[in-house]
Structures are given as C-alpha cells and as structure tokens.
Design a protein around this nucleic acid. Structure first.
Lengths: 201, 201
DNA sequence: ATGAAAAACTGCAACGAGTGTAAAAAATAA
DNA sequence: TTATTTTTTACACTCGTTGCAGTTTTTCAT
C-alpha cells in the first residue's frame, strides 16, 4: 500500500481537484465554473488538470469506476441458488442504500444529481457512463449465468431493468414528485422490467 | 404550404448545412471536420450555422424531431383493441422498416450509426436525445392508456423496452455480430422487456 | 414601385475547453 | 551527490460557441 511519495502526492492532487471542482460546481454552477478556477483552487496549473481528468465533465463522475467495480463483484459472487431477478434487484437495493447512507455530510451524490438533472451536457455524459456500466454488467451477468443467458439476453435484461428505472424516475422528476414517491417508482419499475424474466424463467 | 420566399430559403440553407455536414463527416470524420468547413461548403458564414443548429453535434440528429413525431402519432392513434405491448412492438417494427427503407442511396442513418458508435461525444448526445424521446413516448403512452398505466408505469414500460433493445444491440455490436443477428436480438430483447407486461396484464 | 419594418446574415472580438511541446521542478534510484 | 524518470508548468495554438453591431434581404403597407 505504501506506494511511495510520488503516488501519495498524486492521490492528494486528485482529491484536491475533485473537492475544488465539486465545491465550485455547487457554489456557482457547472458552466459558470471555469477550469482555471478549479486548477487555481487545487493549486495546480490548468494544464495539469488534464493529466488527471480527460475533461471538465469527468471530474463529476470520479467514482463511477469504483461503483461499477462493486456491482460487478456482487454479480460474480452469485451463489448457486440465486435467480437472475434476485441478484439484479439486490444491486438496485445496494445503490439505494449507498445513496441514503451518503445523505449526511457534504453529499457529492446530491450535488451530482442536481447538476446532471439541470445541465444537458452532464446529462448526456451521465447517460454515456451509464451505458458503459450496463455493458459491463451485462457481461458479468452473462458470466454468472452462462447456463441460462446468452450475452445478448443478459444485455436485454440489464437494459430493461436500468432503462425502466431511469425513465420512470425521470418522469417522476419532471412531475416534481417527492423522494418517497420516486423510491416507490423505482420498486415498481423494477417489477415491471423483471416480471417478464420470472415469467420466461 | 407556400410559406413565402423567406421560409423556402431557410429550408434550403438548412438542407445545405445538413448535406454539407453529413458529407464531410462521412469523408473525414466528425472531429476532423471543422465548423468553418461545413459553413463554407454550405456557403454561409460560420456564425449563421448557429442560427440553424445549436451545436455541431446537433446537425447529425436533424431528423430526430420528425421521427419522434411519427412515433407519437402512432401512439395517439391507438385503437380500442390494442394492447400496450402490441402498440409498442409496432413502433419497433416501424423503426426497423424505416432503417431498411433507407438502406439504398446515400444513407444518412448509416453514417450516423457509424459515427455514434465511434465518437464518444456523439454517443452521449444520442443517448440524451433518446432519453428525451422516451420521456415523450412515456407521456403519450400514458395518454393512450389512461385507464391502465400511470405516467411512471408508462415510463418504466418505455424505458424497459428501449433500454433492453439498446443494451442488447450494443453488446452485439461489441461482438461484431452481423446485421441479421442484431435484428434477431432486437426481437428477443423486445420479448424479454415486454413479457412482464403481458404477465402483469 | 417605394420606403419602412422585420428578419436573416455577416464579420469581428472574445471566452473557455482542450492539446502539443519543450523547458523546469520534483521524486527516485544509484 | 548525480543521473534518470516522472510530473508539472508555461506558452502558443486550434476550435466551438456566444455577444454585438452593422449590413443585406425579405416582407408588407401604401
């Protein structure tokens, strides 16, 4: 773990950039925050920002990789008795759990959610990140259920579940529904998407 | 229909911009094509481009609005006997039909498909356009089946169907599957996503 | 037709994101 | 310490995008 000073310093710079960016995005909005400001706040040159993140948008999704890793681990830890639907619904529960857990303190997830809902370019980027995740999840699901699901079928399954939840939640958001209502919608969307799976076996 | 010279000229300029852009994207790639080149090819100033399209990416999706209109019309033309699943699968058939119909001549859809699959920013933008469409479709589906589907449920249904197809197709694309295989996957994904709907009634 | 009003187009200046490059600074290994 | 490797920095440049002010084109009432 002791990776040497160089590595530690890089992690510190990365964290500084993330925190500076999140703070500024929260405070003045995404488009109103300039890259120069983020770099200044993190005390590095503007150029250096780009050796840590490929774009201004990427900072916001700094933990996407870790999140995905967790989900993939869940899938590969499938126990013989688990059904496809059970395993996937577990993933959803996990995500909701994480969201609730982070509801105290300074919540990066909340800032991100607000930004993604209001800034078109961020929404687009979020969808792109989500698609990549779904492809990986599909692969993992296929591995976990080699006997029952082709890769395409695993893709359809993951896509149906995530797609159902995402669109249902967005309609709720458009209608200014409360958090409780949205949570209920997530459940219901999961049912709708996976009911077929149970029916088809 | 005769909207006057002004309107006709605007349509011509719009078409010129679209064709110039598509030709250049096809020829040299999206990122390699500069806005100045597109404008020059269409014989307008760079500045004028932006009174027709909000961004370079938007040109590629010039027909998204019309496509969506068509789908929405289909939904509102629901006849009393139609089930939700039938109506939605009809939409899918329509889209496939259009894709095949356009397979001759200079195919804008094919160019767009290739670009969307290879240029990350375009993929993100496409997903964003698709999400918006899904939200509208959900609203229309809700209107068409007021008695049976809440708005959230309509969202979940549309999201499940489109999500299933999209992710399944993308896994196929990643695996270099043939067009025939992909078409089969679309069918199968539709089944998986909507089987639950039939089961739930 | 003619001139005023509205709409569209243009050139120009400016800003910010992102990239290539070469030099400076910092960390590592010897 | 010195030599080597990695990281950071400054600088210059391209490109997408926007605001603005002035010019051209179309419309429309007379």
């Amino acid at each position: 773990m002791a990776e040497g000073l160089r590595e530690r310093k890089k992690q510190r710079t990365r964290q500084a950039l993330i925190q500076a960016a999140m703070r500024l995005f929260e405070e003045k909005g995404f488009e109103e925050t300039t890259l120069a400001e983020i770099a200044a706040e993190a005390d590095v040159s503007t150029r250096t920002f780009f050796s840590y993140f490929a774009s201004k948008e990427d900072v916001l999704f700094y933990d996407a990789g870790a999140r995905l890793e967790g989900a993939l681990a869940r899938l590969s830890a499938r126990r013989p008795g688990d059904t496809v639907a059970d395993l996937l619904l577990q993933l959803i529960d996990d995500s909701i759990g994480q969201a609730i857990a982070g509801a105290g303190t300074f919540d990066a997830a909340a800032v991100r959610a607000r930004l993604v809902l209001t800034v078109p370019s961020l929404q687009a980027r979020a969808l792109h990140v989500l698609l990549d995740s779904q492809l990986m999840l599909a692969k993992a699901l296929h591995e976990a259920f080699r006997d029952r699901l082709t890769l395409s079928e695993a893709g359809a399954t993951v896509g149906a579940l995530i797609g159902a939840i995402m669109v249902a939640v967005m309609t709720d958001v458009d209608e200014n529904r409360s958090v409780e209502e949205i949570m209920a919608t997530v459940r219901r969307a999961g049912e709708i998407a996976l009911a077929g799976l149970r029916a088809l076996g």
